[in-house]
Design a protein around this nucleic acid. Sequence first.
RNA 1: GGGGAUGUGGUGGAGUUGGUUACCACGCCGGCCUGUCACGCCGGAGGUCGCGAGUUCGAGUCUCGUCAUCCUCGCCA
Length: 592
Amino acid sequence: MKGLSRTHYCGDVRSEQVGEEVTLMGWVQRRRDHGGVIFVDLRDRFGLVQVVFSPEVSEPMFEVANDLRKEYVIALKAEVRARPDGMVNEDLKTGEIEVYATELHILDEANTPPIFIEDEINSGEEMRLKYRYLDLRRKPMQDNLILRHKVKKAVRDYLDSNDFLEIETPILTKSTPEGARDYLVPSRVNGGKFFALPQSPQLFKQLLMVSGMERYYQITRCFRDEDLRADRQPEFTQIDLEVSFMNMDEILSLVEGMIQEIFVSVGYDKPEDFPHITYKEAMDRFGSDRPDMRFEMELIDISEVVKDSQFKVFSGTVAKGGQVKGINAKGCADFSRKNIDDLTDYVGIYGAKGLAWIKVEEDGIKSQIAKFLSEEELDNIVSTMGGEAGDLLLFVADSPKVVAASLGNLRLKLAKGLELIDEGKFEFVWVTDFPLFEWDEDEKRYVSLHHPFTMPKDEDMDLLEGDADKVLSQAYDLVLNGIEIGGGSIRINDSELQEKIFNLLNMKEDEIEEKFGFLLEAFKYGAPPHGGIAFGLDRLVMLLGGLESIRDVIAFPKTQRATCLLTEAPSFVDQKQLEELSLEVDIEIEEE
RNA sequence: GGGGAUGUGGUGGAGUUGGUUACCACGCCGGCCUGUCACGCCGGAGGUCGCGAGUUCGAGUCUCGUCAUCCUCGCCA
């Protein structure tokens, strides 16, 4: 660094330093050449400061300043001066001063960057990902990573003060059945065998409870080889924790404290309300197990009202065990045919075969289904739906699953379109009382809704014999603004009950022994009651930052095809590497 | 695996019913300028229109295929 030693960050120079000599380092944001004087905005992580180069100070230095271009890395000595009258820049934290360069060194030249280093996004995401290191020079991206850091620090401070220990668990671990597809890692030493990257540290954290660690946490990477979304990456970060000797309510209030600490530490109001809703109620009222509580527009069941109607689409669906539900789009009676057709297409994505509508207008009802319904039935429907003049009532008749998915998502779409959502608001809700099992039609067996280590509710234990699909679990999800940010459960700590659950999942004795024998064995040596939860750090930071995608809070995220545009991973490997790993690749490798 | 959107100089976009030399902004290069801060002014360079076929006298534009990025259904214990 040409023997210089940095004395200040660019963004930190203030009027107090007027008259002092400072040594600054950073990147050239912009150069303004006025012939006789050159201004350079110098940028580092902490801000911008205006540097003035004058030939009167040093002719050779001025010549060097002439060669400066965007993103050159420079070091300089300069005198801090107050700006002349009327020259103060209100938009800059350092706007009251400028620094007069006395010595200038170019530490590294720079090619013209392919994307602009500006606060506003001026490039497509493909460019931003390919040149991620440049995208990360932009202040909004730096702010996102700073926010992420603050959240992690708040988590560590809070959990540390509550006697939690941060303990690492293996990244190379064992493939498990159930759940998401594993990322596999071949073992060279044990040819033909594979490690799996963890989908979560679930089994290890339970073993740590058997070890008597009592309170464990870890901010750790998890891997799932499934298709990506705006809020799903193949590797993502969990705030994972587990405690012994706490019941569900105690765990929930413990983590509510953590959430409060996080919010306060990043400058938001402390959230106070963490209401509870059961899974069933969430599905009934919102058509989702992660309801967005920032607005109303709940789903209303009209099955009883229409079950005997002449309109076969409604009555027939009810007769077959389906349901008819609707939502009331307040004030939307002026929607055009085209609008409604679009909404019909939209619910089609979720399997709905149609979307019935009723417009409630001053002079009566307008509806494509009015002719199939009696006046009394129509009146009944409108009053059940709370319909008033100006409202648009929208209905789906189908299986409960399709009704929930289509109306639940329609509710969200309408709310966004009608701007019913206060974007500055944070609304939490705990979803509890999840079913323990779900019937898998493809595999013709029960699968765990949460995971196989989840404790059934005490009062449902006897239902395990014969009525397994009715058993509720001691599982809980924390939902924020319609996004699941955390989920956990009280775990089974009894090897006999655990074996019974495995059996209900139709797992064979030898499979249980091979996959989970070590866990069942561990539970025979005194396992404390325990439970825990894992938060999706990326999603949480995304929400706190008011962002649309977790890619914006991950330094080097993957594309939707699960590739890295920067490193071009994944890639083919040498034949020699494959041979060492006892692997053969069964696809044509295209010539470069 | 399915549905949808997008792809045009370095970047972001426009490009009509298929028809002269593909346009604009920013950026870049050169010149001028001692108070700018998205500096200004003058001049200049820079394009296989993602890729491959097809239709046509003629394709950025139409058709088919393919690749990439994004949104999404399935999937995600």
